[in-house]
């Protein structure tokens, strides 16, 4: 019985949150990895693009709320999501047109594009703060829980319980749908295959008559959808704050690199590796151990390996370990 209780505490505080967080990181890392695979640079503006797309979605959410439109028990933000994606897509295509395309035609070195993306990052940063300011925005509405800890306890009769928030469930379900759609697109459609071909061997793709500008355009559209979804899911699950989104850059990149830059499958694996390590290492295990260990052996302290303030350190250390022992990542990514 005690073991069951400890498992349930583990589920409530580690497994479920890490699963949701991992899904958010995975979708974010997919965006990074696609840009890397097709446009061949690390996009430093990714975090701030996520902030931008979430901002737009929040504006639409507020508008829907003001006119009384809602999505029943689901958050209104899901209704606003397509609009957020559309506007982000426009912004990305515009950015590509006036900023990135020039360097592509110049065949600039990847590192130059990284610096260019730093400029875009600044602009986005300013844009987001123009629109919505620097503060915290909570835009989740609808039903808060699918079931609560108390409901679970009453149902099971156990001492401990676990609950699932609507946003956590939505995150995981959306992630599954998004990943399935993306892989279907990449593996089954002509355009998707041409993207993979372009990422694999640009010269041969050109020789085969694949239009690079079209591949790039489709990539930006997909990335717009991925960033918006990742940003909105993270914002629903936690809360929206522009600076937090900038800081997400680190775990997202860590996820993409750990998985292998350029490998979509790797991005997903990397997202969960980073999320689970971050949560398990910064979680205070006392409660789990009290149930799991025999009497007299339970820990006196919190049994926390590291304080939550050091969660960046976790992604960083994993990143370094992977880079040292397997520089191409868990799934073989590209090296330029």
């Amino acid at each position: 019985m005690d073991l069951l209780n400890s498992l349930i505490v583990l589920t409530n505080f580690v497994l479920v949150p890490a699963l949701a967080y991992g899904a958010q990181l995975a979708i974010g890392a997919l965006g990074v990895t696609l840009i890397y695979g097709i446009l061949r640079f690390s996009n430093f503006a990714h975090g701030d693009t996520m902030a931008f797309s979430t901002t737009i979605t929040i504006l639409f959410t507020w508008w829907f709320q003001s006119i009384g439109a809602n999505f029943g028990p689901l958050p209104t933000a899901l209704l606003a999501l397509p609009f957020g994606i559309a506007i982000t897509a426009l912004l990305m295509l515009g950015t590509d047109r006036i900023v990135y395309r020039f360097y592509r035609q110049q065949k600039a070195k990847p590192v130059i594009l990284v610096i260019v993306s730093m400029g875009v990052m600044f602009v986005m940063n300013g844009l987001v703060r123009f629109i919505i300011g620097v503060g915290d925005q909570n835009f989740a509405d609808g039903e808060r829980f699918i079931f609560t800890v108390r409901e679970f306890r009453d149902w099971s009769g156990l001492e401990e319980g676990f609950g699932i928030r609507t946003t956590q469930a939505i995150t995981v379900i959306t992630a599954v749908i998004v990943v399935a759609l993306l892989f279907w697109f990449l593996n089954k459609t002509r355009t998707g295959k041409s993207m993979r071909a372009f990422s694999d061997n640009e010269d041969l793709a050109l020789l085969s008559g694949i239009n690079p500008e079209r591949v790039v355009m489709v990539t930006w559209l997909i990335v717009a959808a991925l960033t918006t979804i990742a940003g909105v899911l993270y914002g629903l699950d936690k809360s929206f704050k522009p600076f937090t989104y900038f800081q997400l850059l680190l775990p997202i990149f860590a996820a993409a690199i750990v998985g292998g830059l350029g490998s979509p499958l790797g991005a997903i694996a990397g997202g969960f590796v980073i999320a689970f390590s971050e949560v398990t290492i910064t979680y205070a295990w006392k409660k789990v151990l009290v149930y799991a260990l025999p009497d007299g052996l339970e820990p006196s302290g919190l049994a926390q390996l590291m304080s939550t303030d050091y969660k960046f350190a976790v992604s960083f250390v994993i990143l370094i370990i992977v880079l040292l022992f397997r520089p191409t990542g868990l799934f073989k990514g590209q090296s330029v």
């Binding site: 295959k193 041409s194 993979r196 071909a197 061997n201 793709a205 085969s208 008559g209 694949i210």
Partner: peptide, 29 residues
């Protein structure tokens, strides 16, 4: 290529991460 010339480069002449069939499909792009 559109005019009817087929060219096989000396190196990097396949898409290594694509399946054989996908390589052929891309040839017919």
């Amino acid at each position: 290529v559109v005019q009817g010339m087929g060219f096989v480069p000396q190196t990097s002449n396949i898409f290594t991460s694509l399946t054989v069939e996908e390589n052929l499909e891309m040839g017919a792009f």
